[in-house]
Design a protein around this nucleic acid. Sequence first.
DNA 1: CCCCTTAACAAGACGACATA
DNA 2: TATGTCGTCTTGTTAAGGGG
Length: 486
Amino acid sequence: MSGLRERLLRHKKPIGERAAGAPEAAEAAAAGAAREAEDQEWAAIGAHMEQGEWGAFVMRRREYDTAACHGRYALNELIGQSDQLHVLLARPGTDSDPTEGQLPHDKLLFVDTETTGLGIGAGNVPFMIGIGFYTHERFVVEQMFIRDPGEEVAMLHYLHSKLQSHPYLVSYNGKTFDWPIIKNRYIVNRMPVQPDIAGHLDFLYPSRSLWKHTLPSCRLGKVEEERLAVIRQDDVAGSLAPALYFQYLAERKALIVQGVFVHNELDILSLAGLSIHFAGALNGKSNLEQMDLEELYRLTLWFDKLNQPSLAAPAVQMLTERVCREETEHASEYLLPLAQLYKQRHCFTDACKLWTLYIQRRGARSTAALEPYIELSKHYEHKLKKLEQALDYAEQALLKARQRQVLTRSYGTAGSGLAGRSAAARKNTKDYEQLVSLEQRIQRLQLKLYRSSAKSKPTRGTQRPPRKQTSSAAQASAGYVMDSLI
DNA sequence: CCCCTTAACAAGACGACATA
DNA sequence: TATGTCGTCTTGTTAAGGGG
């Protein structure tokens, strides 16, 4: 058997175990007294022993009026808003939506476990399963805690019964952590029932989609602090939970795990808070005016990914307005990504406006991106059929590329660090390929231009056709450019 | 510590178009 | 009409980061 199980059993002091030679009445009285003392300890932290068909376990149950606040949100704000969360359930493979756009708030089961470690294997045991759910105008948090492995089956049966009435799981990283572990426990315990759920909302991934670049980390604690305005005081770190549980097993004092209960409860409440936050966003209630540009941009990408064009539209519009209005460095960072977004939607006029604006703001710099020049060149050639302008943009891009080649060359030779060399070399070859393709583009445009002018003015024979280069010839010429700079 | 999801980037597939 | 090129869409791969 695993070391963990031995450890658990070693510490087990079965209540009411027969002490040798003691008279039965006194023995029963002593056992009763011990039980009473323990009950009082659990009562002191708001818990009690829950007796059921499958045995007993510790239960800490707390009810909240739904008007109660957790950070900036009142718990009742999910009511009537939760249906929109169903878009987060849609699987990439399945087109049909199993929930038909319905996801009542009282069908959700918020779940967070505390375990003996981080592994997913059978050696990792959830000693506490916290759940939260809405029922009868209340938000209820129920925390199940097992004093030894023998109580696990009762706890799992209880969870199973709750899943019947609240079949949609809500968690934070529960798809890869909590839920696989829980399923494992049903299997390990050879339970007649298997946990079955209608759907699983995992808020880690939406949080990453929106805040990966704005928050220092997307851990639940950071997200709830920054986006739910939840401040934890004297919180026990989740990473301490295993140690505290082992200490509890050794000393059998309920007070030892009190902090774990509180931590777990706050996690559950934050899951409800995140549901409200994301449901609000999916109902178009985000405060776009006050949102950071990065978050606004990520929000549009997120709506796009979720196939919600009616939500993405106002976000894109707000982002465009602000990026065009605010002439800051930071705002200009979004011109090109935003232009790509418009291009993707075949809104070429808007895309061109942004590419032009980028050139206007940053074109003078040597570090300016080539992308807007190349994109404009493509657009003038293929969409507007204006070859002169297309050639002009391509030539501007080539000029920039050559200037940059000079700079990177000189940096490259001056650089002494070995670590950065491969990355710099990669960038060099990439720049080189870009240079080659630009020269090809220009030659092609020159040829096209020559032919069209020859066609329209066949009498004028003064212009000479540009030398037609093969791609290898273009490469050689680009190589010459590079070699000449070394 | 371990596993899973996702974003970011790279490479391949395919349709549209133009030229000979 | 056959062929090649361009641009975009699709597929494949990799790395990071979260849970106690």
